Simulated scan of single mutants.
Amino acid sequence: MRTHVLPDWLRRLLMRSVGHRYYSLVVSVIAFAATITFSFPFVAVLIPAVLLAPRRWRTLGLWCGVASGCGAAVLVEIFQYLGWEFILVRYPELVHSEAWRMASEWLQRWGLVAMLVIAGSPMPQTPALLFCALANVSTPGIMLAVGVGKTVKYLFLAWATAHYPARFVRYH
Score class of each variant (00 low, 15 high):
P7D: 15
L157W: 01
G69F: 04
P122F: 04
A128F: 00
A114G: 08
A44P: 00
W63T: 11
T126K: 01
L51I: 09
A145S: 11
G65F: 03
Y91V: 03
A67M: 10
A103I: 09
P54V: 04
P48T: 03
R90M: 13
L14E: 08
S138F: 06
K150P: 00
C64K: 05
L155T: 02
F40L: 15
L155V: 04
V50T: 07
R109N: 09
L75I: 04
L14W: 10
W9T: 15
K150S: 13
E93V: 01
I47N: 08
L88T: 13
V5N: 12
V74H: 07
I142D: 01
E85Y: 06
C132F: 00
L52C: 06
F40T: 14
T139R: 10
I36M: 13
P92R: 03
M115W: 03
R56I: 08
V27Q: 13
R167A: 08
G149W: 02
V89D: 12
R109V: 02
W84D: 15
F131L: 02
R56A: 11
G19E: 15
L14G: 10
C70F: 15
V95I: 15
V43N: 06
V76I: 10
G120H: 02
F38K: 09
K150D: 02
V76C: 11
A166W: 01
F168K: 06
R56T: 11
R12V: 15
M123A: 10
L60P: 07
F42S: 09
F79A: 14
V45W: 02
L134Q: 13
H96N: 14
R101K: 08
A128G: 08
I36N: 08
L82P: 00
V89F: 06
L10S: 13
F86D: 05
A160Q: 06
P124S: 05
S68P: 00
M1G: 15
G147F: 07
C132E: 02
P165R: 03
A34D: 12
C64D: 10
G147S: 09
P41G: 11
M15S: 13
C132P: 00
F32G: 07
R90V: 13
G149C: 06
L157G: 00
Y23G: 12
G111E: 04
